[in-house]
Amino acid sequence: MRRYFSRDVAGKLGYFVNRRIFKLQNEYTKRDGGTPESRAALARLRRDLDGGAPAWMTVGSDLFEGWGRSLPSGEEDPAAVRAARAAMELYACHQQSRRHGVAQDAKDADKIRMTFGRACRLIDPDMEHAKGVRRRLSAAEAAPDFNGVVRSVRALIMLMRSAGDGTITLDYRSLAQDLYQIQFPEACSEVFQRWSMDYYSGTGATTQRHDA
């Protein structure tokens, strides 16, 4: 079992999650209303976050298909599995009933990378009225365990869904890496520092990531 944060694993995990999410997003946002398979996959992924017990032999194909040798096994590094699972479940909540893709498109290379902190700032750019956003960010930092962090992140993603015209996108590759890193005591503070800087400096700020 891995006891220390690995930047190499974080980078590979982010790319794996991104591939899985974009495969699903491309199917779900097709002009004909998306494929039945993609709608069913999103429903399965949401079920766990909604408190239902997942049927692992069914949801496993959505989560783990393509989990190659470059990524650790669940026994070697359970934090990687938890991060991938949480990121994809959060994406499923964010994408629900949206006909546009909510995961930031990798083709938008000319745009600012929409990290979690930057996306949270877009919920309500008026800092005078964004106390609820900051309260939830603080709750994530103060959470006693990983599940508590995920609950706070989900609350913020639900605010992204309802903010403005509902078009806030999120870089899920970045979020998956953060959710992995946040599980290691020696490395989690760096994540909250990054979220804070990206949030308070606004969407035009740039911060160096571990996979840059």
Rank of each mutant, 00 (worst) to 15 (best):
R2M: 11
R3E: 15
R3Y: 11
S6P: 03
S6L: 06
R7T: 04
R7M: 02
V9N: 11
A10Y: 01
G11M: 06
K12R: 15
K12S: 06
K12D: 07
Y15R: 14
N18T: 13
R19C: 06
R20S: 14
N26T: 09
K30P: 00
D32H: 11
G34F: 11
S38I: 09
S38Q: 07
A40G: 08
A41E: 09
A43W: 10
R44M: 09
L45T: 07
L49S: 09
D50A: 15
P54V: 00
W56P: 03
T58R: 14
V59I: 15
S61W: 10
D62L: 10
F64G: 11
E65P: 02
W67H: 03
R69P: 02
S70M: 05
L71A: 01
G74I: 14
D77S: 14
A79M: 11
A80E: 05
A80M: 06
V81N: 00
A83W: 06
A84G: 10
Y91I: 10
C93Y: 05
S97L: 04
R98G: 00
A106M: 07
K107T: 12
D110C: 07
D110G: 13
I112A: 15
F116T: 04
G117L: 03
A119H: 04
C120V: 09
R121H: 15
P125D: 03
A130F: 06
K131W: 07
V133I: 12
V133E: 03
R136Q: 15
L137K: 02
L137M: 15
A139H: 05
A142L: 10
P144V: 14
D145I: 05
G148R: 00
V150P: 06
R151M: 11
R151N: 09
R154L: 15
L156G: 06
I157E: 01
M160F: 00
M160Q: 10
M160D: 01
R161A: 08
R161I: 02
R161C: 12
R161W: 01
S162Y: 08
D165H: 13
T167L: 10
I168N: 07
I168E: 01
T169E: 12
Y172K: 02
Q177M: 14
L179E: 07
I182Y: 03
P185Q: 09
S189E: 12
V191P: 01
F192K: 02
F192P: 01
Q193H: 10
W195A: 00
M197W: 06
M197I: 13
M197D: 15
D198N: 13
Y200E: 12
S201I: 06
G202R: 00
G204K: 07
T206P: 00
T207H: 05
Q208Y: 04
D211Y: 14
A212T: 13
A212V: 12
